[in-house]
Amino acid sequence: MSSGIGVFGIFFAAVFTSNILLTMYLGMCSFLAVSRHVKTAFGLGSAVIFVMTATSVINWLVYYYLLKPFGLEYLMYIVFIIVIAAFVQIVEMIIERVSETLYTALGIFLPLITVNCAILGASLFMIIRNYTFAQSVSYGLGSGVGWMIAIVAMAGIREKLANARIPKGLEGAGISLIIAGIMSMAFMGFTGMIGLG
């Protein structure tokens, strides 16, 4: 176990320097599709934070208390995917019953999340990096927050771009990718902030 890295350090790295979206390209599909308006981006972002944190926790428990004792690590991918899909389904049903407002705010994004690579990515990385339980929680939360910051910032920039003149071939995906590249460079600049030592 890599207990040497502080929980806070992991959180910070996951949000900024090693942002799951901007350095690992995970969750790009919905990133490009939903980053047109700040409001929707915010909604999807919150849903991702919630699901990512929760599934990291569940998957950690499943992996260390179910799969590992029985030597079933090789089934990890299947199990994780099922956990995520089932979790999203259950949450959708609960939200639908409990609160109308929450459902209209979050519910529509939930089906999108099952196929969001970032969610599965967070679960896989936390296993591969041997995180402890506390580290996994902070990693899941940090990755979610980082993803949301990236998509909301992107949506903000794209809203401004609506009135800009963009070369024809770059409209849409092209310009978004260039923005993402510049954001990615900017986020790399945070490296100096975490002197993990």
Partner: peptide, 22 residues
């Protein structure tokens, strides 16, 4: 070095899409 790092992929893909679309 920037090409090996994360931003490089974004720029490459954008340029590629630009050229293909254009």
């Amino acid at each position: 070095s920037i090409m090996v790092m994360a931003p490089g992929a974004f720029f490459m893909l954008a340029v590629f899409i630009w050229m293909v679309k254009g």
